[in-house]
Design a protein around this nucleic acid. Structure first.
Lengths: 241, 241
DNA sequence: ATTGATTGGGCTAGTCTTAGACCATTGATG
DNA sequence: CATCAATGGTCTAAGACTAGCCCAATCAAT
């Protein structure tokens, strides 16, 4: 934990891969977070390439790879586009072990710690900021969405709820960081079976988070998020054992 | 705050610039955070290029730019290297306004919010983790370093103290995120005059942070960090007005 | 003074990436 | 059924980036 260790932290690779690989990751993030739901399509290639700051050629390579991997269905012509075909796999301990083996235990622990820190931080900041009527309404709406969701939409709307907390702080940096943190564990979360007991428990914890934020109580918000995420982490560990 | 807004969050540019620009930013981060102090030198080009995952040509362009801008002094031959010549400018309201104008008020607010969230999150996580003897010793050591620092070393050791909290959580993701958050405001912080009153105040707050972490009290840790950073933000605002 | 190891300086051939133009397909609409 | 706008498919020339190699400078050790 000396200076040289800190130097290593900052002098890490400038780029996580080539443009193609990074683009695949980014699109996969949008898909797995449910930002483009099954049946919907990505923006047109020309527009998307501009948004991502890459050439159309590179974007098309990435889309081709995701299409080959079964995440997208690309259709030509007017009203065509790259349609999302991905549906999260059925919860299963095998998938979970597979996902954990792919990332390694160290990275798993890193990802869970990271998520805990940034989501607690976001909730706390939002609670401190005394959100206005409009923001409160969005938060309550997202909570209701999760509670009304069927099993198919649950993960997606749960993600939307969690991300909206960071978004409502008004900090784009915080929003993208929370999205990043969430996407690092999304495959793991998808592997956890959705038992009614757990969903009920989660609903209570979600309510506690919203209550604390609406009450402007950062300590309670922090605690509620920590409890919720620790609960999820415990489920993961139990399911792994 | 609807789905399309969330999509924009994720479908942002894949790369923040070309390899040259990103490399300049990264080196500047290491320099401004004081990870390579004045008079010290960067690792040799060949080694650094590997660490940063770029070619030596691109690295050399970046070093050249920083050398031209007065941050580095490059010397050839054995025992040569790229020596850091940068010293933070004297605190001054002019510098501050300049820095703020460069980044814009929206980005400033974003950066401050971001830092508040991630540093509070890190402190909370560390407090929850019940750090071992060795970690506690590092934390106490860093605190002592700040308190014993002269005016010249204060900023650098203050940075080291703050970053060590994130590092001690054992999460590389969290450590790099906190380093990123800090570097986004370092120019602003450098512009604040170091009055003894403020330093004394900061010392008390630093102590409160360490006490809370050592006591394993995440709420107190969160509160202490929030108070400390809010104090800094208040100084900034006051100095801007 | 000579040597040798270490480090920055520079060149070249090849690959990755981009910008922009043009082609092909689709399906709603008149 | 012909049209047309939106969208994916393809090609090319130019620029960005890389890997690998060799040169030049410096200075401690001998």
């Amino acid at each position: 934990m000396d200076e040289s260790a800190r130097l290593m932290t900052v002098l890490r690779p400038v780029r996580a891969g080539n443009a193609f690989e990074e683009t695949v990751e980014r699109l996969l993030q949008a898909i797995k977070l449910g930002l483009v739901a099954q049946g919907e399509k990505l923006p047109p290639e020309r527009e998307l390439a501009v948004r991502l700051g890459i050439s159309r050629v590179t974007l098309r390579e990435a889309i081709r790879a995701l299409s080959d991997a079964g995440y997208l269905d690309v259709r030509r012509g007017r009203y065509g586009g790259a349609f999302v075909t991905y549906a999260p796999p059925e919860p299963d301990a095998g998938h979970l072990r597979e996902a954990v083996n792919e990332m390694g235990m160290a990275d798993l622990s890193d990802a869970l710690t990271f998520r805990l820190a940034v989501e607690c931080g976001a909730a706390q900041v939002l609670a401190m900021s005394r959100p206005g009527q409009e923001q409160r309404a969005v938060l309550v709406r997202r909570l209701a969405d999760v509670n009304e969701a069927g099993l198919e939409d649950y993960r997606r709307l749960d993600t939307a709820f969690h991300l909206s907390i960071a978004e409502l702080t008004g900090s784009p940096l915080l929003a993208t960081t929370c999205a990043d943190a969430r996407s690092r564990v999304s495959d793991l979360l998808n592997a956890i079976p959705m038992l009614q007991v757990n969903l009920d428990h989660a609903a209570v914890q979600h309510q506690a988070i919203v209550d604390a934020i609406l009450a402007g109580d950062p300590d309670a918000a922090r605690r509620a998020v920590a409890e919720h995420l620790e609960g999820t982490a415990a489920l993961l560990r139990a399911f792994l054992a």
